[in-house]
């Protein structure tokens, strides 16, 4: 079982550095040393032009959002992740400690143009400042996509050297299982949990993002998306039009309090679905599904 958070020893301390995640360039800087978790180390880059800058502070001067306009809460019956407030013209984020949801772990302000973050992080018991500590890091990655031709999706992806195949579905439907099966058949696993899909001048590509463990940045061309479920036999059905778009959208990571965010996702996936095949795939969790897909996919 993967942990929802990562809180072990950090691997690097820097005042300023750049990350390249899904070909988005991010600059982080602070007057204090920033602790960079192991999962981010392979994503360090030397890029000079940045899509987003992140200024990091200790939480002493954290902004107060409580009397502001609450627009979104990422929470369920058992977990509380973060809250979003309208803060002047910007967005204010309150991120909760995943081991103690009554404790605020970070607060953050995202500028109106989504180009600049200020993150106020609570140092841990050893005094380490870790502004990207989960779930802050994935939130930043998600907001890299909302004004771009991109989406973030809960899915696994495998690459056979020519084609990239995404497998998505509800929790427990076998995203990791099916990527493992394809891995055993010689495919590279791009990631088995969280991906970014981007449109580029040469087509649609899938990228991994930093996780709680160390992995190298990976990228694959996207050829097809499979909406998976366990089934007594392997069974495939191609989806098109509104059904294909809406079913893929359901597994994208979304903050749907803003009309623009929804519209951007709908526009992106509508265009994607005209070029990328979308299938429903019921599968038996063994190697037979690989041959079955290769024999029955239409692209």
């Amino acid at each position: 079982m993967k942990p929802l958070w990562y809180n072990s020893s950090t691997a690097l301390k820097l005042n300023q550095f750049s990350l390249n995640i899904a070909d988005f360039s991010i600059k982080l800087y602070s007057e204090s040393e920033i602790d960079l978790e192991e999962g981010y180390l392979s994503f360090l880059s030397n890029t000079q032009n940045h899509d987003t800058t992140i200024e990091c502070f200790s939480d002493i001067n954290s902004p107060i959002f409580e009397n502001k306009n609450l627009v979104f809460e990422a929470a369920n019956e058992i977990q509380k992740f973060y809250s979003i407030y309208k803060f002047k013209t910007d967005l204010g984020f309150v991120i909760y400690n995943q081991q103690n949801i009554n404790e605020v772990q970070q607060t953050a302000i995202l500028s109106k143009n989504f180009k600049h973050w200020q993150i106020f992080a609570k140092p841990d018991e050893k005094g380490n400042l870790n502004p990207l500590r989960y779930p802050m890091g994935p939130i930043i990655m998600q907001y890299l996509t909302v004004k771009s031709e991109a989406v973030m999706i809960h899915a696994s992806c495998v690459f056979d050297g020519e084609k990239g195949r995404i497998f998505t579905g509800f929790s427990g439907t076998g995203k990791s299982t099916i990527s493992q099966i394809w891995s055993e058949a010689g495919n590279q696993v791009i990631n088995d949990d969280r991906l970014i899909i981007r449109k580029t001048d040469t087509g649609y590509f899938v990228y991994n993002t930093p996780m709680y463990y160390r992995d190298s940045p990976k990228k694959a061309p996207l050829n097809s998306i499979f909406l998976i479920s366990h089934y007594p036999e392997n069974k495939i059905k191609k989806l098109t039009g509104a059904i294909a778009v809406s079913k893929v959208l359901a597994f994208c990571i979304q903050n749907n309090f803003d009309r623009f965010f929804i519209q951007n996702n709908l526009d992106f996936l509508t265009a994607l679905s005209t070029q990328i095949a979308v299938y429903e795939l019921g599968f038996v969790p063994n190697s037979s599904v690989v041959d079955y897909v290769l024999s029955n996919e239409t692209v």
Binding site: F72, G241, A242, R259
Partner: peptide, 14 residues
């Protein structure tokens, strides 16, 4: 999308 319409509710939670 084609002859169909997708509608998504504005929402304040996941």
């Amino acid at each position: 999308v084609g002859n169909e319409l997708i509608i998504v509710p504005l929402s304040g939670n996941v």
